[in-house]
Computed example of a mutant assay.
Amino acid sequence: MIKRIIGTAICIVMSCALFAQEEEIKFQILNQYEETLNSATLTVGGNTNEHLADDNGYFTIKAQPSDVVVISRSGYSDFSSSIAELKKDQTITLRKDFSWKDLMNPMFYIINGGLWLLLFIVFAETGLFAGFFLPGDSLLFVAGIYSSNLVHEFFKAFGIGHIRNEWIDLLLMTVLISIAGIIGNMVGYWFGRKIGPAMYSWKDRFLFKRKYLNDAHDFYEKHGGGAIIFARFLPIIRTFAPIVAGIVQMDRKKFMFYNIVGCIAWVVSMIFAGHFLQIWVRKQFGFELRDHLEMIVIIIVLVTTFPVAWKLLSGKKKPKKTV
């Protein structure tokens, strides 16, 4: 009987000691695009439960120092971490499985290609037919937020020490991206000039009428400069505007002038908006724009496509009145 009592007491003491060793750990879970995840399945010490983050995006668990935490979420690869790692970093990156939707996420290109992929996308959006689906506006906006990191890649590639100064970073970003955009437009224009003369001899078809070329030629003669500038701010249209300008044989010098003006205006507005709006929102409201990039992308798409939709809807011919 005495041995049994002693054994029970020892078990109780050991249980209390183990319980006393439990620690409360707080940590955040992000994906590779730096988006905060607010729910996940956590396995701690063999016990699996669904957890929700608090209003600040932090998860709270109680665990012993020897426990291993396994983090799971649908559409993501599982991740395991020791308690020591959680206490040290307090941030876990859970890798999201690739989906085609990621191609519309500007952070996909920032993470996987950085500055060099960014420059290629700006070029491809206007230099290649296939570039019309690429997220140019939102990508430049996000590039403004990460301008310092992206410029660091440029200096690193040439073995130059990076002097971190926001104005130098923004100026260099503007120059590099503007050059890529200007060259892209030039390629599109050159391609249009090459195939343009042949198109005037094409027969009318369902998707092609020579009248369209004549109308486009008259439009560019009258509004060519404005068309090239404003096309920069309109998704899809900026891909085909320089090509059409080349097809209708728009004056080369006139095209180049408005090409440069439009590209610089587009790059400066998007890069500077992303950079300084991020700073202003952080100071005024205490949160990071980068944590809400999906909503930002949607807003930018709506804003940039609204003029096109409005023009298409308001430009419909009104039915003629019968006398």
Rank of each mutant, 00 (worst) to 15 (best):
M1V: 08
I2T: 12
I5N: 04
G7L: 12
V13I: 15
S15F: 09
L18I: 10
L18F: 11
L18P: 00
F19P: 01
F19E: 15
A20T: 05
E23A: 11
I25V: 12
Q28N: 11
Y33G: 03
T36P: 05
L37G: 08
N38C: 09
T41Q: 13
T41E: 14
N49G: 02
N56S: 15
G57H: 07
T60C: 07
S66A: 14
V68Y: 11
V69R: 06
I71A: 01
R73F: 02
G75F: 00
Y76K: 04
Y76L: 03
F79T: 04
S80E: 14
I83Q: 02
A84V: 09
L86Y: 02
Q90G: 05
T91E: 14
I92H: 01
I92C: 11
R95Y: 10
K96Q: 14
W100A: 07
M107D: 06
F108L: 08
I110L: 13
V122S: 10
V122N: 13
V122Q: 15
G127W: 03
F132R: 05
S138K: 01
F141M: 06
I145D: 05
S148L: 09
N149Q: 14
L150N: 01
V151E: 04
V151S: 01
A157M: 13
G159E: 00
V175E: 06
V175S: 05
V175N: 06
L176V: 13
I177N: 08
I179A: 14
G181H: 02
G188K: 00
R193S: 07
S201Q: 12
K203N: 12
F206A: 12
F206M: 12
A216T: 13
H217G: 08
G225P: 04
F230H: 03
F233D: 09
P235R: 06
I236F: 07
I236H: 00
V244C: 06
Q249W: 04
K253F: 06
K253R: 12
Y258N: 09
C263M: 15
C263N: 14
I264V: 15
A265W: 01
S269W: 02
M270V: 03
F272E: 03
F276V: 05
L277A: 13
Q278Y: 11
V281G: 02
R282T: 14
Q284G: 10
F285W: 13
L293P: 00
E294A: 11
M295W: 05
V297G: 01
V297R: 00
V297W: 00
I300C: 02
V301P: 02
T304C: 09
T305S: 09
T305M: 14
W310G: 05
G315S: 03
K317D: 10
V323K: 12
